[in-house]
Each structure stands twice: as structure tokens, then as C-alpha cells.
Design a binder for these strands. Structure first.
Lengths: 329, 329
DNA sequence: CCATTTATGGAAATCGTTTTCCAAGCATAG
DNA sequence: CTATGCTTGGAAAACGATTTCCATAAATGG
């Protein structure tokens, strides 16, 4: 493998000069720069990222903290999009991404997690699906030991940014579309896990709508579980004329229940996952562009690692109606 | 951050001694070993993986080459399981995994890919979903520049192992179960992408069965596409009494077509993805344990990196019947 | 009791970069 | 013609481990 030393020798300059050329430092004449670049191209030199990251303090690795358990499989689609966005943007930004599953760190102490990440050369972390119960991650954020970007939880600080859609508005929008399309009076709202950050925001959105439109609102906690959403729908749907769900998976559960009960109620979801196309009926939902969100999160993390201060980033959402025919193509 | 130097100073020994203790080298007395370990624990020292990997030639990183395009979403579930298995096993083996999407390398030359991976310190690569058309990856394998493990393609060599289930037998088994349960005479087989390695093996399995059982067999290429499977079913199902598909996604397409046509035909799939539970009917399918396969692939890659020679690893499969109620729990 | 081996621990080179600091070289100004 | 400043490029010290080789001390054998 050709190293910077070889390039230096071949070009007849010092190692430091090659490094300067490669990193676009000043104080190198156009002449030497050209000569070095010629040799770099000819020899096909690519700098060793491991060595660079050891030497330089600015070049750091980034961890993507993945929520994953084999049972809640609908999140696979979302996780893959997060990973995809992060990995692609990381390559552009010359950053190194390592994927870490929450299951790997959840029974470690903050100190253990910190030294694990430090040993891995990690400078920044992206988290999603955070709940108030994730103690370790919260301590990690508080410690300000790493630059962090939190997707979908309104947490900012010196070293912490957050990225998300406007959950309250999105919930408001999709529900509004659904109730106006169907002349609704009584809304059954199946909300998410009470410890999840988005749960409260989305709840706020539906409440605002029902107040504005003078709709009767019943809220039940579905905890993002398809099964619970199904049960809740079984129990309450008869007395309501619309089921608004805080996630697509719950919307699917609700829809299945309605099919079994053989009654019609408009249902709307949240997320825009492909699975929605497989339940046989079409539904309104909020489409989040998870790839984009993840790319944005990496940009934001990069900014933080450059020394910028944390901030809140809100990305746009769209409303869609998902059905099978649109999916299978 | 505490480094090996700090440990050495605190323990009153040389840096090299600490390193020897940590890497279980001989020529260290029990006394010093204990003393060093005490300090390591007290200071909470964790070796810097980046530095270690730069210094040592044995400590290498591993790339997981992910097939991913936003349209064929059923593979998300499979990809996530591959990632999960690899990442977890990698941590146990003290290896570093980086995930790379095929889209990132597919329009690079082998030389470019090679120097990219080398610059990343990558010593081993895991690939899955390989087709004969993936020229770059094939050249990569031939170059023997990296240790490689190919999932689901029968390619072995000095530096290359393969890991998979017995695709022919699995296809044979699941189809046999389905035809015996339903007194079938004429089988419609919707096969996969003609460039995929598993396609031929699975085809072999169904052919063997039909010969043994004297069944009439019609083969059409569904190219692993749900839509094509649907079209093929529309066209041919009436003249057959069973639809055997080389993948679950195609089985879903077939099932949807049958529902639309309002005729009943037993359908069976291959893979055992969760999505199967969402189509409303139950089907036989082959369940592959992708997490396990991935773990095994990492073990195998580790063996190769230790200097062992490539070989073929066959893992067991199981037959399952998937339906919604089993899924939502 | 001396010679020779063996166990143990340390000094120093190495991996491939980045980055700081310093020495020329050169031009401009006084 | 000397003093000053700016540009350019090189030497060398990090970064944090691993690993080779060497020196000492202890143990063994004759």
C-alpha cells in the first residue's frame, strides 16, 4: 500500500508538504501543489483514514445509535432509512460512522458507555426514538462529553442539537384532512408511548384541532403497539366516527380491528411506512423523509463537531394517502 | 482520557508490559499481571481501538456490504437482521464493522474500491444478495485482496467462504409440505432473478420435487418482484392448483392476485419475513434466521482473517406457517 | 561455583498521518 | 546595503497502541 511517505519521496518534497496539499492548507506554492497532486494521482494514493483519525483531533468517528428489537419490525424500514442517510452523508463529509444498537449499551453505566465510545474514537452520536426512560442516554447528553444530535426529541444544549418534523403540526394537519373529508364529530385518538417525546407533541396537535373544530376527543394510550391499538379500536370505535393514530403501525392495528368488526371508520396514521400499503385499505398519513432527516442530523452533528453550538432543526413533512397499488411498483 | 501510558506509570511498569497483559501474552508473572489489571480496573482504562488498529496488523476492520434501494422495502427487515447479527458478533470478536451500501461502490472501478477499503483499514468484507451481474464485487473476490464471506452464493476460495441455508433442499421441503397438504397436481413456480445465485438452487429444489411426485411444473421468472409475481399469477394461476414462489414478497404478490381473482390456490413463499403476516392469509414459507447467518458469517470472516482457508458453511432452515395473529404480539 | 538457559520487564521502533515550529529564501522598504 | 516581513518547505513531535529486541535476574545443570 502506498503511503504519504512514498508520495513525498516520489515528489521530492517533505511529508508535511504532502499533508498540507492534501488538506488544502495555505503556504504551498501552486507549483509544488501541482507536482504533489500529480504524484498522488499517478500512485493512486488514498490517505489511511485510521492513521488520520488517530493523529488529528478533528477527524472523529460518529456513532448511530439504533433502536432495534426483533419484535417491532415495522421500525426496520425507518431504521434502514436512518442508516442509509447517515452513511451516505458521512462519506461525503469524510466521517466514519459506526452503528451501535441500544441493546448493546442499555445495561452499561454512563461511565462504561463513555469509555467505550471514547475507545472507539467517537466524537459525536446520533440518537432517535428516545424516551424519558432512557436514563443512560440522558446522562450521556447531560455529560456533554460528546456532540449529540437527537432525532425527534426537543433537547438542545451547548453540545446537543435536535432534528425533527413539527410533530404537533403534522398530527394536526393529517387529522384535519381526515376529519374534513369525512364529516367527523367524535374522534378516537390512539396515542403513543407516554414516555416518548413525540407522543406529547402529537397529542397537542390533535387537541388543538378538536378544540378548533369543536370535536369530541377520546384519548387512549396505544403505546405504539399494533395489538393495543387493535384492542382499543375494538372497544371504542363504535362510539366514535374516526380513529386517529399516532403511528402507522397502530393505524394498521386499528384498521384490522375495524375490518374484523365489519364497520367503517376513517383511520389515519403517522410516519408513512411502506407496510401501510399492505393492509388492503388506504389511509391518510404523515410522510416523514427519514433519509433526509438522517442526512440533516449528520450535517448538524458535523456542525457541532466543528465547534458550533446546538440548535433546533425542523424539517418539513407531507401528507399522503397510502395504498397497495402505489407500493408494489 | 486515560491511556496505556497512564496505566504503565501508575502500575510502575513499562508500556509494553501493560500491552502484554492486555493481550494475554506470555512472559508476564502473575504478580505483575495482577498489579496491572488492578490499575486498569481502577482507572477504567479501555484501549483506543483506532490506535490499536493502526499499530497492529491483526486488528482489522470489517465491511458489511448492504444491498439497499428505497423501493424494495421488504429487504429492510432482512438487512436489519444482517446488520444486527454482524454488529453484535463484531463487538464480541473485538472487530470494527462499517456498513457500506452497494450504491456507494457500484460505479467505482475495482482499484478505486480496493483503495477506498484499504484506506479505511478494512481487511474483510461480508456480501449478500450477490448476482452474477455484480461485476465489481466479483472482481473484488477474484483479486483476493480482502478476506470475504459471501452469503447465499456458492463461491469459495483461498480467501473466500460462503454461508447460506441449503436453498435447494429448503425449496424442496416447503413446496413438498404445501403440495402434500393440498393434493396438488400442477405447480406454478415463480422463480427469482435469473442472475441471482439462489434462484438456480431453489429452482433445482422444486424440479426435484415435481419429478419425484410426478407433478406438472410451469416455471416463470418473477425476478423477485411483487408486481411481476402478481401478473404471472393473474395469467397462469387458473390452470394450476398451487403457486410456489422463490420469495415471500412474490408470494404476497401472488396471494393478492388470487384474492383479486377470487379463487383459492395454496401459495408458499421463501424467507419468513414479518410482512407475510400482513396479507390476511396464511402461507407456508421457509424461515431463514438472518441474524444467525450474519453471526456465522462474521465468525467465518474472523477465521479467514486469522489465516484459515475458505470453506462452505450450510446453516439449517425451518418451515413455518405465517399468519397475522402470530405477528402482532 | 560457574556457565548456560529461561523467565521477566523495559527501551525503542513502528504504524501513517497531522500539526507545530523553525529556517531558509526572497522581496520590499528605509 | 541592511533591516524587516512574508512566503515556502522541511524537521520533528505528537496520536496511542503493538511488537521486536535486548538486558537483567533467576533458575537450572554440570
Amino acid at each position: 500500500m502506498v503511503s504519504i511517505k512514498d508520495v513525498a519521496r516520489e515528489a521530492g518534497v517533505a511529508i508535511s508538504t504532502v499533508s498540507k496539499v492534501l488538506n488544502n492548507y495555505p503556504n504551498v506554492s501552486e507549483n509544488t501543489r501541482a507536482k504533489v497532486m500529480e504524484v498522488v494521482d499517478r500512485l493512486g494514493f488514498v490517505p489511511n483514514a485510521v492513521a488520520a483519525s488517530l493523529s488529528s483531533k478533528k477527524m472523529g468517528r460518529v456513532a448511530l445509535l439504533i433502536k432495534f428489537n426483533l419484535t417491532t419490525e415495522a421500525s426496520d424500514e425507518i431504521s434502514m432509512q436512518y442508516i442509509s442517510g447517515a452513511v451516505h452523508r458521512a462519506k461525503e463529509l469524510q466521517l466514519d460512522v459506526i452503528t451501535v444498537f441500544t441493546s448493546m449499551i442499555e445495561d452499561m453505566t454512563v461511565e462504561e458507555v463513555t469509555s467505550y465510545f471514547e475507545s472507539q474514537g467517537i466524537k459525536g452520536i446520533i440518537v432517535y426514538g428516545l424516551t424519558t426512560k432512557d436514563k443512560v442516554v440522558h446522562k450521556l447528553i447531560k455529560s456533554e462529553h460528546f456532540k449529540m444530535v437527537v432525532i425527534d426529541a426537543p433537547i438542545t444544549g451547548e453540545c446537543t442539537s435536535c432534528v425533527s418534523v413539527d410533530n404537533a403540526k403534522a398530527q394536526y394537519d393529517v387529522a384535519k384532512k381526515t376529519v374534513t373529508e369525512n364529516k367527523v364529530k367524535k374522534v378516537l385518538y390512539i396515542s403513543g408511548d407516554e414516555n416518548g417525546y413525540v407522543t406529547g407533541q402529537r397529542l397537542q396537535g390533535i387537541k388543538k384541532l378538536c378544540e378548533e373544530k369543536k370535536l369530541k376527543l377520546t384519548v387512549r394510550s396505544g403505546r405504539f403497539s399494533e395489538l393495543r391499538a387493535r384492542e382499543i379500536t375494538m372497544k371504542y370505535a363504535k362510539n366514535h366516527d374516526c380513529v386517529v393514530c399516532a403511528s402507522d403501525l397502530m393505524a394498521i392495528g386499528a384498521m384490522k380491528a375495524l375490518i374484523d368488526m365489519d364497520i367503517f371508520r376513517p383511520v389515519c396514521g403517522f410516519d408513512g411506512i411502506i407496510l401501510m400499503g399492505y393492509v388492503g385499505k388506504q389511509m391518510n398519513t404523515v410522510k416523514q423523509d427519514f433519509v433526509k432527516i438522517s442526512e440533516e442530523a449528520l450535517d448538524e452533528l458535523n456542525r457541532l463537531m466543528q465547534g458550533d453550538v446546538g440548535r433546533e432543526v425542523i424539517l418539513p413533512h407531507t401528507l399522503v394517502r397510502m395504498k397497495y397499488e402505489d407500493i408494489i411498483k
